[in-house]
Amino acid sequence: MSVRQQRNWFFFLLVLPSLVYLLLLIIGPSFYAVKLALTVPAGIHAPHPTARFPSLVNFSHLFADPEFWLAVRNNLIIPVFSVIVELIVGLCLALLLSQKIVGRGVFRTIALLPFVVPEIVFLIIMKSVFSEHGYLNSVLETSNLSGVFWLEPRSLLALGVVILVDAWHVTPIVFLILLSALESIPTDIYEAARIDGTTGWTLFWYIVFPLLIPAILVAVVLRSIDAFRIFATPLVLLGFEGTPVISSYAYHYWIDYSNESLACCATTVLAIVILALSYLYVKLWKQAERIEG
């Protein structure tokens, strides 16, 4: 065996555990889910000998269900607005905490807290904040203001709360990405800009922001793909009925109706959307690199 072959084998062995993991726990179950989505159990009496495969009947049921379209709508609105909020807040935090201010380390730690706390704990705290007799309404009532029904199912306000809570939880990731990008900008550039008399907004807009664009792109790509998989936030805050999204719709069919086929159908649609989105991002990325190059 040549040295080159030996090296290839070595690399293959290094990759093997990840490949096995991907095949057994991601790719295999994904194909099984697609198979279930394309299978129609013949009756309630499962296992039934005449289950039909392949069939698109589940998809036609799915597309005929208004609840599914509501879930699709929410699944588009929540990630878009959530990522926008995360970017704005994350950028502001990064700009603020990259300055040499007293207690910067403490503030940075505080900014990271929402992400450090386990998701379910964070969401239960948020539910206590926004519920009818929650902390926020207590504050309003002690200030002689009337309480607000923040989590009224299907209301726009509840949708806004879901966006806010989701953004709040993951803004620290965006903050970290942008902070590291800000800190990697050479100080010479700032000094040169200052000598030229550029400060404040002009400095940010014409010098800092263009240098941050690659980091912003990374944050947008990472977060928007992740944001489309939203599940726990609307489910914990409002239950399935409150603000359905595609994954909670699938969960509802799985857990409440034991209908694996329809659940897998919904998740297949979600997977296709995410795959398409990822492909689009990769394309855009390559195009951006080519232009830069």
């Binding site: 009818e132 239950g239 409150g242």
Partner: peptide, 11 residues
């Protein structure tokens, strides 16, 4: 209650 739409046993 307006939240009844999402009530289950525990909620």
């Amino acid at each position: 209650n307006p939240s009844a739409r999402s009530y289950k046993e525990n909620s």
